[in-house]
Write a protein that binds this DNA or RNA. Structure first.
Lengths: 348, 348
DNA sequence: ACATTTAATGGTATCGATTACAATGTAAAC
DNA sequence: GTTTACATTGTAATCGATACCATTAAATGT
């Protein structure tokens, strides 16, 4: 009763054809008489045959498997990006192998490297990394998600930080703010730079106060958000703060609270990232949500098309940088609770 | 210059032996003359040979790959558990394939099922799931992490909810609290049950007030934590709250705040889970941290030993349930800011 | 009607390793 | 000096599918 594995051979026998023909049917493409094809397909169905991926991989060198290299598993955005990657992979019948991306770049060369059709890298610091080493001498298709590399061979799928920042400031402007403080992330991060640009453009477009004194720098942490906000308070006055991320926004709120300033009544605050904590802090924190799931989907989609092109000997025609739009999440920290206060400030 | 793949054949040639001998060296176990072994090892090293895992898999039916099935990628604890799983897997030269665990249980049968040496399941609701279907007719080694199944064939690696809850109440007691309110999660969750038991035991051990009125039920969300706390406030008085998870703790704090009760001055609050948000809410929230990384490591370790035993024809000797201890994280929400208040209360 | 394509299918080597079995060498035993 | 046992090593089949080449059958052209 124990029927081992059902192989292409069994199918061939049942259908009265050769294994070569069965293989042809399985791989669509080639010409097979429709009568034969039908017989084979029926045999497959009746026997409940499914092709052995390992044998196929050995023969063809491809495995329908992509390698996902993650720098830090506990990064805030990983899970949502994973959702997108996995969904797309699943839909296209690909498998996803997950490993830690060793900072040193080694650890990828170990067994398992072969037969990988492509690579996705998620990291905060890809620009420091030699990706061609990761891609190997076979120069496997590789895309970065949520991380940037200058190497134009590798597409990068990123949130549109510029547009997201613009959105944040626009929201504050719409709400009636005029003096928007900005707490930037570290200047050497591409994301920081883009968010600053978005801030500046929106300030200009909406005719808000342009003043270098309104800009401060932190390093993404609560503590530096707090300190940056203190410096802003000393130096100038403002009616709102746009923080480069949610942690710094929370630090800023701490500082405001110490100065007896209430959020959003006295100062509106908006963050960036839309981390889970936005819904848990009080007041709940408005923020800019990155399209994480979509990033994952698009990254996987891009990778699959790279793989396709490579298999067909075409050269890749993908953009180097793909930016997906962010969306605004309004919460209490930017609510217009006291219309008057704001009017006063605008008219003064 | 393009040397294709370096195979066992190349090594055999270089070492002047047959491929069979090389294979024997590679697989340790069998007897090979030390002189020959040395020659082969040197040849391997010089050629930079590494064995092709796919070919090996095809021949042996094993692949050094485990399948990780996740119910919800965006579950709060996944990333940290993953860290542990991956670390252990990496150390033991195993690969980790990640997929979504389809609620229906299907989707696992698709190609890729074969050659999987074992399965890890992460889910919130495993008890509803037919795991034997997941394990397949081959009855692959399977372990659950952070989730429970009654099926004793499958080991479960869990945080020790009982001990964690005990720890929380002990902390409150040490701090001087006597009337500890408890907001439980839904009663049908094993975790809720265990946390309640831990609460009760600690209340008894430390001679605190035992009173059914001190116990309320929520469904893990902020909203129900809020409501549960309101009910407690109406019904009785208390000097502290232990919430079944952090979200409900936050809801409770909202309710306390509305009643002009200050945390921790008037009421101390402690949550469970030690979610990231604990460090971001104000006051920062004391909580019980589950050993997530360790859960992952132990789960993978258990799975590997199951695989080992199976390969050696032994029957599994692993415990059905493995509980790992939680640890207390003290933060502001249980700080003893006003020693007096507490003394008053204790002495009254 | 016969030559020449073209379509459809079969035979079999191959991918890179493992392993049962056979063969050889070596040393101890008689 | 054989015989015998045991330790090493080699030969070749095998895992399951693919793909090159050969072959046969059918279709087209003149």
């Amino acid at each position: 009763m124990v029927q081992g594995r059902i192989t292409i051979k069994d199918v061939a026998m049942k259908a009265g054809v050769s294994t070569a023909t069965v293989s042809r049917v399985l791989n669509k493409s080639e010409k097979v008489h429709s009568r034969t094809r039908w017989r084979v397909e029926r045999a497959c169905a009746e026997l409940g045959f499914s092709r052995d991926p390992i044998a196929t991989a050995l023969r063809t060198g491809r495995s329908n498997t992509v390698h996902l290299l993650i720098e830090r598993f506990d990064g805030n955005f990983i899970p949502d990006i994973l959702v997108g990657i996995e969904a797309k992979a699943d839909a296209e019948n690909y498998r996803v192998l997950v490993s830690k991306l060793d900072n040193a770049g080694r650890g990828i060369w170990e067994p398992g490297k072969q037969y990988i059709d492509g690579i996705i890298v998620i990291s905060d610091a890809v620009h420091d990394l030699n990706l061609s080493e990761v891609a190997g001498q076979e120069n496997l298709p590789l895309v970065c998600v949520y991380s940037y590399t200058q190497d134009i061979r590798y597409p990068c799928v990123l949130p549109d930080d510029y547009q997201g920042a613009y959105l944040a400031v626009q929201h504050l402007a719409t709400r009636g703010c005029n003096d928007v403080g900005f707490i930037s992330g570290p200047p050497d991060w591409p994301a920081s730079e883009d968010r600053l640009r978005g801030y500046r453009q929106a300030v200009e477009d909406f005719g808000l106060r342009e003043d270098p004194n309104l800009i401060e720098v932190g390093d993404w942490t609560v503590a530096t958000g707090y300190e940056a906000c203190l410096r802003l308070l000393e130096r100038t006055s403002f009616d709102s703060i746009f923080a480069g991320n949610d942690s710094m926004a929370i630090g800023a709120i701490d500082a405001l609270r110490e100065h007896e300033l209430r959020v959003p009544r006295d100062v509106a605050v908006i963050g960036f990232d839309n981390a889970a904590l936005c819904r848990y802090v009080r007041p709940t924190l408005s923020s800019i949500a990155m399209p994480l799931k979509e990033l994952g989907e698009v990254a996987m989609g891009t990778l699959l098309s790279l793989i396709d092109q490579r298999n067909n000997g075409q050269s890749s025609d993908t953009e180097h940088v793909l930016k997906l739009p962010c969306v605004l999440r309004k919460r209490d920290s930017t609510k217009v609770s006291e219309q008057l206060t704001i009017r006063d400030r605008k008219e003064s």
